[in-house]
């Protein structure tokens, strides 16, 4: 029962979504709108899994005083403060804190987002530029003819797609565009077919209960 009921639910909702696509009858349409609403609401609870795991992980680290447990306090305290200012709609208006004013531009939540979330998140990704430059120098070698081909295509796209490319020669952007819209298009379309067919097969396996990895271990 612990496995059958979830599998039956999966089958019912999977088949319903396929049938509904082809049968836009008013009844199926109404049921479709109800299902869309349900899934939207259910999905939000999935957040519980992420937040729960994170809280457990960090509180365990603090309890056991594992190395770096001080940083876990930073995570939990900042999570609690941000949640509180967000849920209580704390705003910074005319130099003072006011409550229940929503999450608009003057909210403390938005201030935290713009001044903590944005700098850290964007700098983490920005750092990749340094590693990529170093990797391009160390690892991007014309070892085989395939690698050489990759290198040549990258060379023209890199040069043709920035203003300096057209300053060197107007032919460079044109050639880069040709690479993108002819051979690149062919390769990407081939990959797209592969992904699409794979996606359909996996979806069918999930609906029919052949793919059961999502059930996890246990009974």
């Amino acid at each position: 029962m612990q496995r059958q009921i979830p599998l039956i639910l999966c089958l019912i909702f999977g088949i319903f979504m396929i049938v509904q696509f082809f049968v836009p009858h008013p009844y199926s349409q109404r049921a479709y709108e109800v299902v869309l609403r349900w899934v939207r609401i259910i999905s939000i609870f999935a957040l519980v899994l992420g937040v729960g795991s994170l809280v457990l992980y960090h509180s365990n680290k603090i309890k056991r005083k594992v190395s770096g447990w001080g940083f876990s306090i930073v995570t939990l305290v900042s999570a609690i403060i941000t949640t509180l200012v967000g849920l209580l709609g704390v705003n910074w208006l005319d130099g003072k804190l006011v409550f229940f004013k929503g999450i608009g531009k003057s909210s403390v939540l938005q201030i935290f987002f713009q001044n903590i979330f944005v700098p850290v998140n964007s700098t983490m990704f920005a750092m990749l530029a340094f590693y990529m430059a170093s990797a391009a120098y160390r690892a991007f070698r014309a070892r085989t003819k395939e690698a050489t081909l990759l290198l040549i295509a990258a060379f023209f796209v890199m040069l043709g797609m920035v203003p300096i490319g057209s300053a060197i020669s107007p032919r460079l952007p044109e050639f880069a565009e040709w690479i993108l819209s002819v051979p690149n298009l062919a390769a990407k379309r081939g990959i797209l077919f592969g992904i699409a067919l794979g996606g359909i097969a996996t979806s069918l396996k999930i609906i029919l209960g052949i793919e059961r990895g999502w059930l996890g271990g246990g009974k």
């Binding site: 391009a136 120098y137 890199m158 300096i164 490319g165």
Partner: peptide, 18 residues
């Protein structure tokens, strides 16, 4: 401008590495 010069630098690095 920065984008263009950085691309040039990466290309030079790839050439030097090779």
């Amino acid at each position: 401008d920065s984008q263009s010069l950085a691309h040039l630098l990466i290309l030079i690095l790839i050439v030097l590495g090779n």
